[in-house]
């Protein structure tokens, strides 16, 4: 029985290795992601693969699972393999600097996806959504809705992992919008989630018990929406817009859950990063850098605020409208 187990395990590992396809003579573009924890990153890596393969190249990928050092090692591995270009979704804006230097030293084009470097240390191109600005615009829209409904709303924000520059940008964008719309809302709860759904659920549940009059919630990422829905249902406060007791709800990302909630009338606004635009720009930048063409150091995704008022015309830019909800 034990021998059978060993043989089965060895066979399985062998089969997996055999599935390492022998590469054809295609240019290889390496993609080093920080995480695939949320739908956004999965949609991004799928879009990158599609873009790369549509240009006749092959994509290899590595995911660092939120570990900057692991990401550095993965990029060093790609450099040792002499890939044609590297797209990095960095864990950290400063920790990515040695990766840029190493890629530059090896003469390999490097593009940063979703997170810019902290400083200019060499040649790189960044494709990024403006987290601060998109959040500020989204929360401003929500504040206007709150003011139209009479103002004085008690508000809650779900904050992401404060070791993540995107979470910080979104928190700061929220605070800026609140400051601009003083009187429309009063922030009574700030829930640290560390990008964890269970912590979000516990935090929102506790906040709703402590402040039962909360009527305005913004989450720094759409992947936390199911936790909010669960907590609101538990508190008997999950109602559609227009119904008495509706809690103004907003998010960031543009995922499938957010899209469905917008369609169903439970979500009021969502800050959307245009994944397709960003991925197409990132891959184009790699090919342009390889060809020696000039590329601007930063390519910005303007993003958009999507709400029920513009849903029909804007949904084509919302990546979550094109994937199946969980």
């Amino acid at each position: 029985m034990r021998r059978l187990f060993f043989l089965a395990m060895a066979g399985y590992v062998g089969a997996m290795l055999v599935s390492c396809q022998k590469r054809e003579a295609k240019p290889v573009i390496a993609v080093a992601f920080d995480t695939l924890q949320t739908e956004y990153w999965v949609a991004s890596i799928d879009a990158l693969r599609s873009e790369i393969e549509s240009r006749g190249a092959e994509m290899i990928q590595a995911v660092a699972d939120n570990d900057a050092n692991r990401q550095l090692e993965q990029v060093q591995g790609f450099i040792a393999r002499r890939v044609e270009g590297i797209i990095i979704a960095p864990k950290d804006a400063r920790a990515v600097l040695p990766m840029i230097k190493a890629a530059n030293k090896a003469g390999i084009p490097v593009v940063l996806y979703n997170r810019p470097p902290a400083e200019d240390v060499g040649t790189s191109v960044t494709v990024v959504a403006d987290n601060f600005e998109i959040t500020r615009a989204t929360v401003s829209y929500m504040c206007e809705q709150a003011r139209a409904a009479g103002g004085g709303h008690k508000a809650m924000i779900l904050i992401g992992d404060l070791g993540d520059v995107n979470a910080i940008g979104r928190r700061d964008g929220f605070d800026a919008a609140v400051k601009e719309h003083a009187g429309a809302i009063e922030v009574v709860a700030r829930v640290p989630t560390e990008w964890n759904q269970e912590k979000a659920l516990a935090g929102v549940t506790n906040a709703l018990q402590e402040h039962p009059d909360i009527s305005f919630i913004f989450t720094s990422s759409d992947f936390l929406l199911p936790s909010i829905v669960s907590a609101l249902r538990g508190a008997g406060k999950y109602r559609k817009a227009g119904e008495a007791g509706h809690v103004l709800l907003g998010g960031f990302d543009g995922d499938a859950t957010a899209y469905q909630m917008l369609v169903d009338g439970y979500l009021d606004a969502d800050g959307v990063q245009n994944v397709y635009y960003e991925c197409a720009q990132a891959v184009q930048a790699v090919f342009d850098l390889r060809a020696g063409k000039p590329v601007p150091p930063i390519i910005r995704d303007p993003g958009l605020v999507i709400h029920r008022g513009n849903l029909d015309e804007a949904k084509a830019q919302m990546w979550g409208a094109n994937v199946r909800p969980r």
Binding site: V13, M16, S19, C20, R23, L36, Q74, G77, F78
Partner: peptide, 20 residues
């Protein structure tokens, strides 16, 4: 990482090798 496998496959293989 250098084999060109998808992340999910990598995780499964890694887990299997550690178990082995």
């Amino acid at each position: 990482d250098l084999c060109g496998l998808q992340h999910y496959t990598i995780m499964m293989v890694k887990g299997s090798i550690i178990l082995l």
